[in-house]
Amino acid sequence: MTDTSLELDKPSRSQWWYVWVQFRTHKGALVGAFVFIFILLGVLIGPWLWPYEATAIDIRSRNQGPSWAHPMGTDQLGRDTLARVMIGGRVSMAVGMTAMFIALLLGTLIGVLAGFFQWLDGILMRLTDLFLALPLLPLLLVIIMLFRETLSASFGPEGGIFILMVSAIGITSWMQTARIVRGDVLSLKEREFMVAARSIGTRNSRMMSRHILPNVLSPIMVSATLGIATAIITESALSFLGLGFPPDFPTWGRLLRDATDFLQQYPERAIWPGLMISLTVLSVNYMGDGLRDALDPRIRGR
């Protein structure tokens, strides 16, 4: 009895409060979120606080091991590895998030359109199947190899490759989101509130923005989180294969690639960027896991 009265006394909370409460119970997700925010802040603010420039060459202090002055050591030109890892992280994170955003936008658009309009469903889903059948890694390598020169010429070497990489990764990774969203939209369409909305003459655009999008937000958010992880791995893989940003422009994959040349002499140099990639991806994956549970109303409150 007391329980009920307590429940009634509680101020009403928004839906997001309950999501947060559920998210908090997932230990891994919480730790993942902290690690991710820490890395994010580190790569955003770190370079301002850190006294060394990522590109500053100091040939006299080259090839040093970890010390107080250089916690991650220096590379063969005496550049501080910590500074390079932080700057590289900025690029990797920026690529990961922008690519995820593009993939999400495309995936949601195609998913909603396919689920909502019967006549578009067939053709859009065939398109999704076709994209799923493309060998993505080889194609990405080819696309980047071919269009690098053209885009570098018009947007500068860094901007061009950034645009190229982000759009290439985005265009090749929207398919899962589209499929999930389409499935959800299809099941939403049969629900009573949709029939009710239609019966009072709601227009299609309003149906989508008002009734469909808020209801498919949870799967979109989960695939957004996991999309960051995939995009970061893809970017690093491309940079590792030598098809990413220009050599003096550090990203995590690039740093790892450069370090493999000195694996025999300075094995620890390869650990840092690799560790950062793995930690970021691991924390993002845990966050996605927790978010999936938190957004699922069937699990909530357990």
Binding site: G28, A229, I233, S236, A237, F240, G253, L256, A259, T260, L263, A270, I271, G274, L275, I277, S278, V281, L282, N285, Y286, D289
Partner: peptide, 16 residues
Amino acid sequence: MVGFSVPPFFSGVLVI
């Protein structure tokens, strides 16, 4: 989860 997250170009370098 670790196996998912550690890309092969890092796990490979690590075991080397």
